[in-house]
Simulated assay, not measured.
Amino acid sequence: MAITRNISATYRGPGRVIRRLLELGQREDRALAYLMASCALVFIAQLPRLAREAHLTGQDLNMLMGASLLAWIFVAPLLFYVIAFAAHGIGRLLRGQGTSYGARLALFWALLASSPLILLHGLIAGFIGPGIGLQTVGLVWFVVFMWFWIGGSIAQERAA
């Protein structure tokens, strides 16, 4: 199934999508591709906010973009691997039957599937700026991300 169809299907049931992705077999390259695509989308979502910040404060936009690129493309993937490892450990403590790969897939897919909301958040941060709209979209993104991650994690812990 196409990634865009899987993303829209995740909004209807994250557990089903994770089980379907796990049925495709354990492919670390696929999980890494989901993570890197997610991090690239988050970086792209930051660009309108960075441009606004550079314009309002007089900072160099290239410096801001370089720092954001370093953070999202090189540092964040390592942190997400650590978070997935910790989530797998928690799953094992709760007597889950999932794999470390399943824990990584659930986290990375949750980030990728919630990326449309991240992009909306970036647009609001860049064009409207701080305010209730930005906070609302940020909260909606966080709730949706946690729903996807927890739903996917439960499904992968039961699937194995």
Results as ranks from 00 to 15, higher is better:
25 G>W: 09
26 Q>S: 10
26 Q>R: 14
27 R>T: 05
27 R>Y: 06
28 E>F: 10
29 D>A: 10
31 A>F: 06
33 A>D: 11
37 A>Q: 06
41 L>F: 11
49 R>Q: 07
49 R>N: 03
50 L>R: 10
55 H>A: 14
55 H>Y: 12
59 Q>C: 02
59 Q>E: 15
60 D>H: 13
61 L>V: 06
61 L>E: 03
62 N>M: 09
62 N>G: 12
62 N>H: 01
62 N>T: 07
63 M>N: 08
67 A>W: 04
69 L>H: 00
69 L>T: 05
70 L>G: 15
73 I>M: 15
74 F>W: 14
75 V>H: 04
76 A>W: 07
76 A>D: 02
82 V>Y: 03
83 I>T: 06
84 A>L: 08
85 F>S: 13
85 F>C: 02
87 A>G: 03
87 A>Q: 06
90 I>E: 02
90 I>G: 03
91 G>Q: 11
94 L>H: 01
94 L>W: 14
96 G>Q: 11
98 G>Q: 12
98 G>P: 03
100 S>K: 10
101 Y>A: 04
102 G>S: 10
104 R>H: 09
105 L>H: 07
106 A>G: 05
106 A>N: 09
108 F>M: 12
109 W>T: 00
109 W>Q: 06
111 L>S: 08
111 L>V: 07
112 L>D: 00
112 L>I: 01
112 L>A: 04
113 A>W: 06
114 S>T: 14
116 P>G: 04
117 L>Q: 09
119 L>Y: 05
121 H>M: 12
122 G>P: 00
